[in-house]
Design a protein around this nucleic acid. Structure first.
Length: 718
DNA sequence: GATCAACGGCTTTTT
DNA sequence: GCCGTTGATC
C-alpha cells in the first residue's frame, strides 16, 4: 500500500501531524480544524507506515461517543476491524484493566461501579451514621470534596488537614466512605483511575507489561485531562512510549470539574523534545464568524496562541439581536428558524445554545406555541432513571451480595414492611461488626434477634434475592431481568401509578428488558459474566437511549454539551452579564477566562449563521432583572456584526405592556370582538389565568374555537 | 405508609 | 418561579 495516500487530502500542518516522526507530539487543534481526522489518519499511519501492530496502540477519549466514532472511522479507513487496539474512555480503559487484575487490586471479581447518584446516597447515609449535621455537611459537598481529592490522586490518608475543622471533618467522611466502598466491593468513577494508577505504581511488573505493549498512546481533548489522568498517561508512556496528544487550550471548559488546562503546557515541559503542530485552518465557519470568535478569545491572556483562518467567504455578519425580554428573544428565534425552513433549510440544522438548563423553558414554550418540533439534549439519562436504577440495584445485589448501596436502595423498595427502626438497627450492627448489610441481615434473621414481623419481612427479602439468583448461566439476561421486575414487586408497584409518569415508568421497565435482550458483551469481556458486563455498561455508559423517531427537530442544549458539534445556524441566547458570564465568574479572572472560552466554543459551533441574543429584561429566579449586555458582545468587532433591535409591534412584547395587561385582568372579557393575525376575526368565549400564563378562548369565524396564550397571541381588540 | 405543606436551592457534565 | 426533598400528620 502506498502510504502517501494517507496524506493526500490533508493540508500541510495536518500532514506534519499525521506523519510526525515516532516520538512525542503535541497537536494544538483549533475548532473545526480536522482534529479527529488527524487522529484517525495518524493511527492508520502508525500501522501502515511505521509498521506498528494495532495491538501496540491505545487511544483515549473522554466520552463513549467520541470513542465509538473514532473506532468506527479507523475501521472504515483501514477496511478491517481493529480488535487488538484499545480505544476507549479513560474510565472505560481503567475499568478494563481493573477487571483483568481484580485480584491484584483487592477487589471482588464481581465488583460494581457506583455512579454519581449512588455515591451521593451512600455519603448521605455515612454522614448520618457519623452523627454529623446534614445541613452543615451536605452529601453533595462531601461528594465534591472526595471526587476532587481523587482527581488529584489523593486518598483520605494523604490529605493535609492541619487544624482546619472543615477539612478534618471532610477527611473523616472520606475515610468512612473509603471503608464503606471497600467493604461493599464497589468503586466510584474516580476510583477506577486512582486504583489503576496505584496498581501500576505498586506492581512494576504489570506496568512494564503494558508499557511494552502500548508503545503508542493517543489522547483526544487533552486540555480536559485532570491530574490523575495525566499522571496515568505519563506512567503508562514511561521512558519508551510515545504520547500523541491533541487538544485546544481555547476550548478548555471543564476546569470546574478538575480539568487542568495547564497540562497542555506541562506536557511541553515534561517532554521538551515533543513536536508541536498547530492546526489553524478552519473548515467549518465563515470568515465573519471566525473573525468574531477570534476577537473574543483574544481577550484571554496566557493562551498558547492560535489564529484560526478560513479559505471560505466572509458570509453573513454575526447577527446581534437585542430583545425586550426573554419571550421576545424566544419569539424572534422561532421566526428566524421559520425563515430558515422556508428557505429550504432543516430545523435540525438549527441549534439553540444557552448557559444554563433553566433557560430552555421559555424557548420551549415559544417553540411549542409555534408548533415547531424540538429536542432538548441533556437531562436524565436512561440508566439514571429511578425505576431503572431500582431494577439495576436488584441485579447488582444478585451479582454481589456485598453491595451495600444496592441493598439500601431496594431492601424496602417496593415497601415490604421493613421499617426505619429495623434498618437503623441493621446499619448500626453492620458498622459495629464491620460487616456488610447482607451478612448482618442474614445473621440477625438466624439469631432471631428481631421482632417476628420485622424478621419475617427481612427474611422474605433475603429469600427473594437468593431465589432470584441463577444457579447456572442457562438463564438469559433478559429473562432474569423480567423475573426481577415481576418478582420484586416493582412491576406491581409502578402499575398502581396510573398517572402519565407511572405509565412512562412501566414503559421504561419494558425498555430495560429490551436493552438486556439486545446487550452484547464486547469481545474483550468474554470471560466476564454477562450480568457483570451489563451492569458495568449501565454505569459507564448511562446512555442517551433517546427513544422517539428521528424527527426534524430544532436542537436545544447547553453551551457545554454543544462542544464537538457543529450546526449551520446557531443561536446563543441570554448573552447578559450575570447570566453569561455568571455573577460569580465575573469576579474571578480564571473563571471569567473559562466563560470566555465557553463563548468561543459556542460561536465556533456555527457554520453559516450565528445569532448572539440578549434582552433588556429577564425573569430569573422569580425576579425581574435588567441585565447589561454581556461583555463578550462588546468584544465582537463591529465590522463583523449586524445589530438588530426588537421593533415593538403593537407593544405586546414589551415587559411593560404585558404587566399592564395583567393588572387590568388581561383586558379581555367574554363577548369581546378581537382580531388575530393568522386566524382573523373572532369573539372571546372565556378567559383563564393571569400574568404570563393568561389564556383566552376565542371563537374564530374561520378557524373555529381556540385557546390562545395572551402573551403570544397578539390579539387586537375591535 | 401515603399525602401534603413547608423549605431551600439554583451554573456548567462525563464517567 | 420551579422542582425536589423533607417532615409532619392522619
Amino acid at each position: 500500500m502506498d502510504v502517501s495516500e494517507l496524506l493526500n487530502d490533508l493540508n500541510k500542518p495536518q500532514r506534519d501531524a499525521v506523519a510526525a516522526p515516532l516520538g512525542h507530539a503535541r497537536i494544538l487543534a483549533g475548532a473545526g480544524s480536522g482534529k479527529t481526522r488527524v487522529l484517525v489518519h495518524r493511527i492508520a499511519w502508525l500501522i501502515q507506515a511505521e509498521g506498528l501492530s494495532s495491538a501496540n496502540i491505545l487511544a483515549v477519549t473522554f466520552t463513549n461517543k467520541a470513542a465509538a466514532e473514532m473506532r468506527g472511522r479507523i475501521e472504515e479507513m483501514l477496511g478491517y476491524p481493529i480488535g487488538g487496539m484499545w480505544v476507549g474512555t479513560f474510565h472505560g480503559l481503567a475499568h478494563r484493566l481493573l477487571r483483568l487484575h481484580w485480584q491484584d487490586v483487592n477487589l471482588p471479581q464481581s465488583f460494581q461501579i457506583l455512579d454519581s447518584d449512588d455515591q451521593q446516597r451512600l455519603l448521605k447515609r455515612l454522614i448520618r451514621s457519623l452523627n454529623l449535621d446534614e445541613a452543615q455537611w451536605p452529601a453533595k459537598q462531601a461528594q465534591w470534596f472526595i471526587n476532587a481529592q481523587k482527581d488529584e490522586g489523593l486518598r483520605a490518608a494523604n490529605i493535609q488537614v492541619g487544624n482546619d475543622p472543615y477539612s478534618k471533618t471532610m477527611q473523616q467522611i472520606y475515610q468512612a466512605y473509603e471503608q464503606a466502598c471497600e467493604r461493599a466491593g464497589v468503586v466510584d468513577f474516580g476510583e477506577l483511575l486512582l486504583r489503576c494508577h496505584e496498581l501500576w505504581l505498586k506492581r512494576t511488573d504489570i506496568l512494564a507489561h503494558y508499557q511494552q505493549r502500548f508503545s503508542s498512546i493517543l489522547v483526544d481533548e487533552f486540555q480536559d485531562t485532570n491530574t490523575i489522568q495525566y499522571a496515568w498517561l505519563r506512567l503508562l508512556a514511561g521512558e519508551q512510549g510515545h504520547l500523541f496528544i491533541v487538544g485546544d487550550d481555547d476550548q478548555s471548559i471543564y476546569g470546574w470539574r478538575g480539568a487542568k488546562i495547564e497540562n497542555i503546557q506541562k506536557f511541553h515541559q515534561d517532554y521538551p523534545q515533543a513536536n508541536t503542530v498547530r492546526l489553524e485552518q478552519n473548515y467549518r465557519s465563515t470568515g465573519n464568524i471566525l473573525a468574531a470568535a477570534n476577537a473574543v478569545i483574544a481577550n484571554n491572556s496566557e493562551r498558547l496562541g492560535k489564529q484560526l483562518w478560513t479559505a471560505d467567504d466572509d458570509g453573513d455578519p454575526v447577527q446581534i439581536y437585542q430583545a425586550f425580554n426573554e419571550r421576545d428573544e424566544a419569539q424572534y428565534l422561532v421566526q428566524m428558524v421559520q425563515q430558515w425552513v422556508n428557505q429550504g433549510g432543516e430545523r435540525s440544522q438549527c441549534a439553540v445554545l444557552y448557559r444554563s438548563n433553566a433557560q430552555s423553558r421559555v424557548i420551549e414554550e415559544a417553540l411549542m406555541q409555534a408548533a415547531m418540533p424540538y429536542r432538548v439534549y441533556g437531562g436524565l439519562r436512561f440508566f439514571e432513571r429511578a425505576e431503572i436504577k431500582d431494577v439495576l440495584a436488584y441485579l447488582r445485589l444478585i451479582a454481589n451480595r456485598r453491595d451495600d448501596a444496592a441493598f439500601e436502595r431496594v431492601v424496602n423498595t417496593p415497601t415490604r414492611g421493613i421499617g426505619a427502626a429495623t434498618l437503623t438497627q441493621l446499619r448500626q450492627i453492620a458498622r459495629e461488626t464491620d460487616q456488610t448489610l447482607w451478612q448482618t441481615a442474614t445473621d440477625m434473621v438466624e439469631q432471631n434477634s428481631l421482632a417476628a414481623r420485622a424478621a419475617n419481612a427481612l427474611s422474605g427479602f433475603l429469600t427473594l434475592i437468593d431465589s432470584l439468583t441463577p444457579i447456572d448461566d442457562s438463564m438469559a439476561l433478559h429473562e432474569l431481568t423480567q423475573l426481577v421486575i415481576d418478582e420484586s414487586g416493582l412491576k406491581a408497584f409502578y402499575s398502581k401509578d396510573k398517572s402519565e409518569k407511572g405509565q412512562g415508568r412501566l414503559e421504561n421497565l419494558d425498555e430495560l428488558i429490551n436493552a438486556t435482550r439486545e446487550f452484547m458483551r464486547a469481545d474483550t469481556e468474554e470471560d466476564m459474566p454477562l450480568l457483570d458486563a451489563f451492569l458495568a455498561h449501565a454505569a459507564l455508559e448511562a446512555g442517551e437511549m433517546q427513544a422517539g423517531a428521528w424527527q426534524d427537530c430544532v436542537q436545544l442544549m447547553t453551551l457545554h454539551s454543544a462542544k464537538g458539534l457543529e450546526f449551520p445556524v446557531v443561536f446563543m441566547v441570554g448573552m447578559e452579564e450575570g447570566l453569561f458570564p455568571g455573577q460569580k465568574s465575573a469576579e474571578d479572572p480564571m473563571r471569567l477566562a473559562e466563560e470566555r472560552r465557553l463563548c468561543y466554543v459556542g460561536m465556533t459551533r456555527a457554520r453559516k449563521t450565528l445569532y448572539l441574543m440578549h434582552t433588556e429584561s429577564r425573569y430569573l429566579y422569580g425576579q425581574e432583572m435588567h441585565p447589561r449586555p454581556s461583555r463578550f458582545l462588546a468584544e465582537v468587532p463591529v465590522e463583523h456584526c449586524h445589530e438588530i433591535r426588537s421593533r415593538q409591534p403593537a407593544g405586546h412584547l414589551s415587559g411593560l405592556t404585558s404587566r399592564q395587561q395583567t393588572v387590568s385582568e388581561n383586558g379581555y372579557h367574554p363577548g369581546q370582538q378581537v382580531m388575530h393575525q393568522k386566524f382573523g376575526p373572532g369573539v372571546i368565549l372565556d378567559t383563564e389565568g393571569s400574568g404570563t400564563h393568561a389564556r383566552v378562548q376565542v371563537n374564530f369565524k374561520q378557524a373555529g374555537s381556540k385557546w390562545l396564550v395572551l402573551a403570544y397571541a397578539n390579539l387586537e381588540t375591535l
